[in-house]
Amino acid sequence: MLPFKTILTAAFAAAALTACAAPHGKPHPRAEHQGQRMNSIHSIESKYGFDETVSRLQNAVKDKGMTVFAVIDHQAAAKENGLNMQLSKVIVFGTPKAGTPLMVKDPAFALQLPLRVLVTETDGRTQAVFNDTRALIAGSKIEYAEVENTLANAEKLIRKVVTE
């Protein structure tokens, strides 16, 4: 039987590789919304290098009064286990002021929070990859109007930080 740490590390590595495997610059179509195809994941090319993109995103989140709960370095975890992969960090962020009312309304929505953004680099191109807000709330008891001034603003912030 494999040790739990080995299984956990393999699961994280698989998740990161899956997220990074899609064609860059194109959103992943995964969800249906009112009969139309909806992009559930966005991948935006950053005009900055990997480290600067990570730093800019962390600072922007903090400047907006949100908390960076964790930064998961998938590449470092892979290296610790003798594996190689591209640069890959997931920034986990949010604010209880925005998330708590949503989780009170729909406790299962806690599986979608806090928000996350993946920063990865392949072929010298840095990408910010994140969930679409409408896809995030799909199937929940949460209406878009309840998140358009909170969760949806996180999408706008990510886009702005990596492209301006």
Results as ranks from 00 to 15, higher is better:
Pro27Asp: 06
Leu17Gln: 13
Ala22Asn: 07
Glu121Asp: 13
Asp132Asn: 15
Asn131Gly: 06
Asn81Lys: 13
Asn153Arg: 10
Phe69Pro: 01
Pro27Gly: 07
Ala76Arg: 15
Ala70Leu: 11
Gln86Ser: 10
Ser140Trp: 00
Ala31Cys: 10
Leu115Gly: 01
Met1Lys: 10
Ala154Pro: 04
Ala60Gln: 05
Ala16Trp: 00
Gly49Lys: 04
Lys89Tyr: 07
Ala13Ser: 03
Lys160Cys: 07
Gly94Arg: 04
Pro101Ile: 11
Met85His: 08
Ser40Leu: 02
Ala128Cys: 12
Asn39Ile: 09
Lys79Asn: 05
His33Lys: 15
Ala108Arg: 12
Leu136Phe: 10
Lys89Gly: 05
Leu118Pro: 01
Ser43Trp: 08
Val104Met: 09
Pro3Ala: 06
Lys97Thr: 00
Met1Gln: 05
Gln36Tyr: 02
Val147Arg: 04
Leu102Ala: 06
Thr95Asp: 11
Val92Asn: 03
Val61Met: 01
Lys156Ile: 12
Arg30Phe: 07
Pro96Thr: 10
Val147Asn: 12
Asn153Met: 11
Lys64Tyr: 01
Thr122Ser: 10
Arg37Gln: 12
Gln86Asn: 14
Phe93Asp: 07
Phe93Thr: 13
Lys105Ser: 03
Asp132Ser: 15
Glu121Ser: 09
Ala110Ser: 02
Leu2Thr: 15
His28Leu: 13
Ala13Phe: 01
Gly82Glu: 03
Arg116Phe: 01
Asn59Thr: 07
Ala31Val: 15
Ala60Val: 07
Gln127Ala: 02
Asn131Arg: 10
His33Tyr: 13
Tyr48Leu: 06
Pro107Leu: 04
Leu102Arg: 09
Asp51Thr: 08
Ala78Arg: 03
Arg116Asn: 11
Ala128Val: 14
His24Lys: 07
Val61Trp: 01
Gly65Cys: 07
Val54Ala: 08
Ile91Arg: 07
Gln112Tyr: 02
Ser40His: 07
Leu151Met: 04
Ala128Lys: 11
Lys26Leu: 13
Lys5Ile: 13
Glu52Pro: 05
Ala145Tyr: 05
Val162Glu: 14
Glu143Asn: 10
Gly82Asn: 02
His28Cys: 00
Arg125Lys: 14
Met85Val: 08
Lys5Pro: 02
Ile41Val: 15
Thr95Glu: 04
Gly65Ile: 07
Phe130His: 05
Leu113Ala: 11
Arg134Trp: 08
Pro107His: 03
Val117Pro: 06
Pro114Arg: 03
Gly25Leu: 10
Lys160Arg: 15
Val92Cys: 05
Thr67Trp: 01
Leu2Trp: 13
Lys156Tyr: 06
Ser55Pro: 00
Glu164Thr: 12
Ser55Cys: 06
Thr67Met: 09
Val161Lys: 06
Leu118Trp: 13
Ala98Phe: 06
Glu32Thr: 15
Ala110Asn: 03
Pro3Gln: 09
Leu157Tyr: 04
Thr95His: 08
